[in-house]
């Protein structure tokens, strides 16, 4: 066995290469259809984060360190939250969380049941999905990096 790093071996790595894009696509689908089907930003973001966690487990911490930038992920998480807040504030003239895009907005105001409908909900789902994905991946990377016990 050439198991030098902390990865899980060639079989798991190959399987992970195949499944990670699929998990990502499925998660993105759940996020994008959050206002139409069961699931939404949180569930989809957690699914995409599953791809990141699979990457961490299959390829090991060393590979993860090369691809993972703490500041970038923190900033992205903040941007997700800010986008949610911004979407909620679009209709502040009427009320906080007023769905102005749905009532009289230029876009996302299509027939209910189509993809481009429901006003600020798709934006909020995307924002929450981004926040949950980056947050969960950061949490897992933190758990892997800062463990305090010896093996």
């Amino acid at each position: 066995m050439n198991c030098v790093g902390d990865d899980m071996g060639v079989i798991v790595r190959t399987a992970a290469r195949a499944t990670i894009p699929l998990i990502g696509i499925f998660g993105s689908y759940i996020v994008a259809h959050g206002h139409l089907t069961p699931g939404g930003g949180f569930q989809g973001g957690a699914t995409i984060a599953g791809a990141g966690i699979l990457f961490l487990l299959a390829f090991g911490l060393d590979e993860m360190k090369k691809r993972y930038n703490k500041n970038l992920y923190s900033a992205l998480e903040g941007i997700g939250g800010l986008a949610f807040l911004g979407a909620a504030m679009l209709g502040i003239g009427v009320a906080f969380f007023y769905n102005t895009l749905w009532h009289n907005g230029p876009f996302f105001s299509g027939k209910p049941g189509t993809l481009l409908s429901a006003g600020f909900l798709p934006i909020m789902n995307l924002a929450v999905g981004l926040k949950v994905f980056t947050g969960l991946v950061s949490a897992m990377a933190g758990l892997a990096l800062y463990r305090r016990w010896r093996e």
Partner: peptide
């Protein structure tokens, strides 16, 4: 009234970016 929630929420979410400075 909503600014009681909006201001801290904005501050907390933008803290990771402000931290870079």
């Amino acid at each position: 009234l909503p600014y009681l929630i909006i201001i801290p929420l904005f501050g907390a979410f933008s803290m990771p970016m402000v931290n870079l400075a």
